[in-house]
Every structure is written in C-alpha cells, then in structure tokens.
Nucleic acid binder design. Sequence first.
DNA 1: GTGCCTCATGGCAGATTCTGCCACGAAGGC
DNA 2: GCCTTCGTGGCAGAATCTGCCATGAGGCAC
Lengths: 214, 214
Amino acid sequence: MAEPEGSDQITGLRDLKRERNRVLTAETAWRLFIERGYDNVTVADICAAAEIAPRTFHRYFASKDDVVGEPVRYMTSLMAEHIAGAPAGMPDQAVLRSAMHKLGVFVVEHRDWLGALRTVIQNSVHLRESHQGVPPEREQEIIAMLAARRGESGEPGWRQRLLVAYAVTAFRIWHDEYLRGKVSDPLKQLDEMFATIEATESRPGLEGHSLGGK
Amino acid sequence: MAEPEGSDQITGLRDLKRERNRVLTAETAWRLFIERGYDNVTVADICAAAEIAPRTFHRYFASKDDVVGEPVRYMTSLMAEHIAGAPAGMPDQAVLRSAMHKLGVFVVEHRDWLGALRTVIQNSVHLRESHQGVPPEREQEIIAMLAARRGESGEPGWRQRLLVAYAVTAFRIWHDEYLRGKVSDPLKQLDEMFATIEATESRPGLEGHSLGGK
DNA sequence: GTGCCTCATGGCAGATTCTGCCACGAAGGC
DNA sequence: GCCTTCGTGGCAGAATCTGCCATGAGGCAC
C-alpha cells in the first residue's frame, strides 16, 4: 500500500519528513475517495484529515486528480527501472514483456486496493475521462529508455512508438478486465495478451526486426 | 471546419439556433486557443468573443477542455456511423480498417486546422495529460456497435476489446506522427500501421477468428 | 390569432480548485 | 553558533463550474 518514491534518494531528515508527509497525504486522499467517492471529497477535507495546509497539498500534487494518477506514475517508474536494468542484448519485446509481467505481479499483489481505486475512477465522470491508462508523456519516457538501452538517440521511429503503445494498451485492457473480476488466471492471461503484440513482430512485410524502423 | 452534429436531428428553429450557437462558440474557442494558447484564454474571453454568457457556455460544454475534445468526439461518431453502415458479413477488422481509413481521409483534409489544435494541446500541461486519443467510453461505444452489427449482445470478450483498443491506438500514433509532419504518404502509412493489427489476428494460438473470444 | 407550455438564455451567488506572494521556523552547511 | 536553504502555512485572488431563478422566444393546441 505504501508508495515508495521510485528512484529518488532520500538524503536528509527534511526530505524524509516531506516524503512521509506526501505518502500520508496520498493514502489519506485515497481512503477518503474510496469511502465517499471522488466528487464528495474536497481538497480541504483531505488536508484536514492529513493535517496539512491546502497550500501544501498543491505543492505535493499538481491537482486533485493528480493524487489518483500516483499509482500509474509509480507503476511506470517501476517499468522504467526494469527496462534500465535489463540485459544489454535482450530485444525490445522481451524487455517489455518481462516489464509488463513484473507490473502484473504488482497489480495482483495489490488487487483489492487497486480495484477499489478503479471503482472510484469509474464512479466519477471527471476521472473517467482523464485517467485512461498511461499518459503520452510516460509513454515517451518508456520509448526513450528503450532507445537509450540500445545506445540510440534521436527521434524514435513509428514502429517503436507503436510497439510501446500496444504494450501499454494491452496492459490497460488486462488491468481493467482483471480488476473487474473477469480473469481467473491473471498472469497467464497477461501473457496471452502480450502474445498478440509479439505477433505483430514476426510477420512478413514488417521486417521482423526490433521495430526500430523510421 | 464546421462541426456537423453527428446524427442529431435538427427539428425546429430553436434547435437550429442552439446548434449554430454551439458550433460558433466552439470555433471561437479554438481560434482563441490557437492564437493565444489554451492557458491564456479564459472562459470569459471565449464568451465575450462568442457573445454568450458564461453560464450558457457551461451548458454547451461540461468544461473548458471539453471544447478541445469536440473534434475527437466528432471523429468517433463518424467512426460509429461508418460501422453502423458496414455490410453485414464483413469481419470486424475489415470494418475497423475501412472506418479508420475514412477517418484518415478526414484528418488529411483538415490537416492544418487539426495540426494547430494539436499544437495547442502539446503546449498546455493540463491538456497534454488528459487528451490522449479516444477516451474509454468512446472505445466502449465502438465495441458495442461492432457487437450490435453482428447481432451479439452482452459483455464483449477481451479479444474484442483488444482489437478495438489496438485500432484506436494505432490511429492515435498515426495521427500524431502525421500532424508532426513526419509522414510523406499519410494514407499509405495508415494502412501499414493497421497491418500490424491484422497481424495479431492470424497467428496460431489466437484461433484466427474475429476476436470475439471470451 | 390567442393563450399556454416548453425551454434556452443570462444574471447572480456560492463552492471549489489552484496560484502567487510573503513570513515563519526547522534542517543543513560552515 | 551563525547563516543559508527550503518546506510549510496563511492570505488574497483568479478562474472554473454549479444551483437557482427570472425573462423571453419558440412551439403547440385550440
């Protein structure tokens, strides 16, 4: 349930307090959202419960929905970490596959909590519109990390973009199906879904390489 | 540039005026956004230019970003229309392919205007976060129309969801690449991208049917 | 044509979100 | 121990969005 802050270094006491406060605030917000629904919780409510000033809240989070986006952010940094740590020779699809598998394990472990948060999002018109999986900026980040891993730089080709977009799309659908209780064997299902992506790879006319195309 | 209102029937004079006003307001808003940037235009500005009251603005559009989402809404209803009109026997991928092609033509025709709007979105942090292609509700709509066309009802299977999600994902990437001026032969490129989806179809282990699987 | 109903509009007040600015005080560096 | 750095809170204010009500134009029945 805790929200470790990706790869940020906690150096001093000041940073520690800040991080602890931020996590506490986020968890307080999630709890209230789950209890009363997103629209029935004001920033002032969250601040009262978390014992911080509204002004401080908006220093932690850019907006109220931003708190809801935190898990997705965390999961993409998890993914980014995994990509960065992948062996040099491994092809992109394999890296993505294992990264998604790792995310899958995380989701399965936090199933109840993520499911509750999903319900919150579904019950708010405003959130339903804006929280549809991985935002484009994060997608770009993943693409950049894949390229960096291969020592490439410059503009990614469309095949590269498409591969990553398919991966996060498949994950989004899986995530949704799973949290709706539609899936009995989640990790097997995730593999099956990812297989549809790998199928896009090994087809004549798609040159079968690692989707680096321009 | 005009924004025909999907399949809504304009019956009387009252509806006519309302629709005309709505379209005028949207176009005024887009113009201002393009001129000054989204964040430098207030609802009051738009209302002054379009000669309506702010209260009326919020009857036309749920929010300020909602105006920006209008083209996407229009394009998905175009897609929905196309799906509804497709011949009965045509398989889903073929329907999606031709629907996307039709959308592609639309985008090419309105290239300059859509490009300007894309720049607006890219230049606003707030918009960049929330306007990432087709929102899930619209996706559901497309899935439902495909199912209805085959006379099916009930919950769509994950393969169905995945197919549609891939299609709109591919379209999103294409749309972005094209409006960024990365594509010389747009419609050919769109076909190429769609080919990656059809590749997910005809693989052993995916049963090669029309992705209706549960 | 007259009278009545429907409903889009506009004005107003208020809740809420979010930001700029400043002062205070704790943490960190010397 | 002193000074700097910086996280926090309070305040004012801009901007978004909603509920409520009065007005007037369009629509409908007779």
